[in-house]
Design a binder for these strands. Sequence first.
DNA 1: CGGAATCCCGGATGATACTG
DNA 2: CAGTATCATCCGGGATTCCG
Lengths: 115, 115
Amino acid sequence: MYKFKGKEYPCCASLTMGLIGGKWKTVILYHLMVGGTLRYNELRKEMPTVTERTLSLQLKTLEEDGIVKRKVYTSKPPLKVEYSLTDFGKTLIPVVQSIADWGDFAIKEKQGVVV
Amino acid sequence: MYKFKGKEYPCCASLTMGLIGGKWKTVILYHLMVGGTLRYNELRKEMPTVTERTLSLQLKTLEEDGIVKRKVYTSKPPLKVEYSLTDFGKTLIPVVQSIADWGDFAIKEKQGVVV
DNA sequence: CGGAATCCCGGATGATACTG
DNA sequence: CAGTATCATCCGGGATTCCG
């Protein structure tokens, strides 16, 4: 049994999935990995099918887990907020990369389609 | 947009997560990766906190996705059923390995506890 | 611009009991 | 032994509206 930040996981793999699992987190991390630093609306542009609320919530939990860094540049509207990976978050790059690579591989291997 | 087996994904990373995401799939794959071929009850022993129903359902979808192979050895009770990775499933080994490795790394890096 | 508030649904997961 | 059946629950995620 693995305990991490107050939560329990039955396996080292499930710990990772607890932090970056779900429908959107790896997609966010992938784009931050490729794009470096991105503003909220730049992320939305990369992920047209996510809702604002969900993107917001996922970014918040990634921030709470120390994976993503949020930097605010203006105190009054219009706000400018930039997101990027923390040093700890950058240690996930090989993981996210292999997840992304396998997705590409599966598409080719099993005749998927890229539209 | 990526289309794979009738489903759509906004990113190559989310395709992978669609197949091996969720609370239990990577745990199953991890144990099959380490243990090779395992019977249903051997899997349960490795994963004491999963319910029979959930384990069963996850194995079934992994089988439908061509990742896990199910082999039945007896036609009458007591049944003997063995699970293992398919050749396609084995292509996931580097992915699952890096997910598991990062879990171990995070435990050490952030003072998690192994019980 | 970058969210927060509210309401809601459905699928994923769990508990328990039963069966070929 | 290896599941299935049934019912309950939980929470990720969506739709919409509003705010500093």
